[in-house]
Simulated assay, not measured.
Amino acid sequence: MRFADRTDAGRQLAVAVAALDLEDPVVLALPRGGVPVAVEVARVLKAPVDLVMVRKIGLPSQPEVALGAVVDGPRPDLEVNEDIARHAGYNRLDIVKLAEPALAEIARRRGVYLAGRDPVPLAGRTAIIVDDGIATGATIRVALRSVRRQGPARLVLAVPVAPPEALAQLAPLADDVICLLQPASFMAVGAHYAVFDQVDDDKVIALLAATAG
């Protein structure tokens, strides 16, 4: 199976998600690539769309090394990579301070993408986290943990493509996992799309504005 583009993947994914007959769903997209997929799922479910934005907190001396990650929400969540933090000599308060620029950027993006709309409450509802695919699963793992803390009655992970080993690690964090394509020889998410172009801010804004209308 190969998807024509993210819209095609979203339409196919929507069929599988709809088959679960989920109660009171909210679709949560990971921007930016997850948004075109998520809006197609939301259209079929007639559900609201919101965002889950995750930003890495890099080690100051080696920014590519993740001390942790911060996730937006009614009360932003901080996930700390305890082993790396301990080895580097950072405590949680240090990392909270290092997270401030990431939180500021998340707040800026939420304002730009959603035009000031408040986050959709998730307590007691079915939360469906959607992205255009999973590679390592690190970002999705943080998103799942953060959303779970917001009290949804049911938490669903839905993606078009992911490696089986990543899904196996993520499955305990969700009540349901839907993945249309699980290639044994996984190279990259984009390899399973005919068109996998960059999703820019303008497209995200337009798609989310259309779902609010």
Rank of each mutant, 00 (worst) to 15 (best):
P31L: 01
P31F: 02
P31R: 03
P31D: 10
P31M: 02
R32E: 15
R32I: 10
G33E: 14
G33K: 10
G34E: 14
G34P: 12
G34D: 15
V35Y: 04
V35E: 04
V35C: 04
V35H: 03
V35R: 01
V35I: 13
V35P: 01
V35S: 03
V35Q: 03
P36E: 08
P36W: 10
P36R: 06
P36C: 10
P36T: 05
V37Q: 05
V37C: 09
V37D: 06
V37N: 05
V37A: 11
V37Y: 09
V37W: 07
A38L: 10
A38D: 09
A38K: 07
A38M: 11
A38C: 07
A38W: 12
A38F: 12
A38T: 10
V39E: 05
V39H: 01
V39G: 05
V39Q: 05
V39N: 03
E40F: 09
E40N: 07
E40L: 07
V41C: 06
V41K: 02
V41T: 06
V41I: 08
V41L: 07
A42L: 07
A42E: 10
A42V: 06
A42S: 12
A42F: 10
A42C: 08
A42K: 06
R43C: 06
R43P: 00
R43W: 09
R43V: 06
R43D: 15
R43F: 03
R43S: 14
R43T: 08
R43I: 06
R43M: 07
R43L: 13
V44I: 03
V44L: 15
V44W: 00
V44H: 00
V44D: 00
L45W: 14
L45N: 11
L45A: 11
K46C: 07
K46F: 02
K46I: 01
K46N: 14
A47M: 04
A47H: 05
A47S: 13
A47K: 05
A47L: 04
A47T: 01
P48I: 01
P48M: 05
P48S: 03
P48N: 06
P48D: 12
V49F: 08
V49I: 11
V49C: 09
V49L: 09
V49T: 08
V49Y: 08
D50K: 00
D50I: 00
D50T: 00
L51P: 14
L51Q: 12
L51D: 14
L51W: 09
L51H: 12
L51C: 11
L51T: 15
L51M: 09
L51E: 14
V52M: 02
V52R: 01
V52Y: 03
V52E: 07
V52H: 02
V52N: 02
V52T: 12
M53Q: 15
M53F: 02
M53S: 15
M53L: 15
V54H: 04
R55S: 04
R55P: 02
R55H: 03
R55I: 03
K56R: 14
K56L: 00
K56G: 02
K56Y: 01
K56H: 04
K56T: 01
K56Q: 05
I57N: 07
I57L: 02
I57V: 10
I57Q: 07
I57G: 03
I57M: 08
I57C: 03
G58T: 12
G58F: 08
G58A: 13
G58Y: 12
G58D: 14
L59S: 09
L59W: 12
L59Q: 10
L59D: 13
P60Y: 11
P60E: 14
P60H: 13
P60I: 04
P60K: 08
P60Q: 13
